[in-house]
Simulated assay, not measured.
Amino acid sequence: MERPCLSRRHALLIPATAAGLGGLAACGPEDEGFGTAEPLRADDGGIPLEEIPEDASTLVNFGGQQPFVLIVRGTGDDLTAYSGYCTHNGCALRQHEAELDCPCHGSRFDAETGEVLLGPATRQLPEVKVAIEDGTLRRVR
Rank of each mutant, 00 (worst) to 15 (best):
V72L: 08
H96R: 10
F62Q: 09
P48T: 06
L24H: 03
P103A: 04
S57D: 05
P4V: 07
P29F: 04
I71F: 06
R41L: 08
L125A: 05
L118R: 15
V130Q: 06
A98D: 15
A42R: 02
G90V: 01
Q95M: 12
G84M: 11
S107W: 00
T136G: 04
D78K: 14
F68E: 11
P126L: 01
L137T: 05
L49M: 14
E32Y: 07
D31F: 08
R123Q: 15
L24M: 14
I132R: 09
G90C: 04
A25D: 02
D110M: 05
L118K: 15
E97D: 14
G45R: 14
F62K: 08
G35W: 04
E112K: 15
E127Y: 02
E127F: 07
N89V: 06
F34E: 05
G63F: 04
T58N: 12
Q95G: 05
A98F: 03
D110P: 05
N61Y: 06
R139V: 06
R9G: 04
G90E: 04
I52N: 09
I14C: 05
L70H: 12
L21M: 13
P15L: 07
P126D: 05
L137D: 05
G135T: 03
C104A: 14
D44M: 05
G90P: 06
A121R: 05
A16H: 07
A121W: 01
P48E: 07
E99N: 14
G46F: 00
T58R: 11
D44A: 15
G35F: 03
L117K: 10
L12T: 14
R123H: 13
L117Q: 09
G35M: 00
H88M: 03
T17E: 00
P126Y: 05
C5K: 14
E115Q: 15
Q95R: 13
E32C: 02
A25H: 02
A19H: 00
I14R: 10
I14V: 15
E50Q: 12
C104D: 11
E2M: 06
E50Y: 02
A11G: 03
A11S: 11
A19Y: 00
I52L: 14
E32T: 08
I71Y: 07
P29M: 03
F62M: 10
A16G: 07
P15K: 12
S83W: 00
G119K: 11
G84C: 09
L79D: 09
G63H: 02
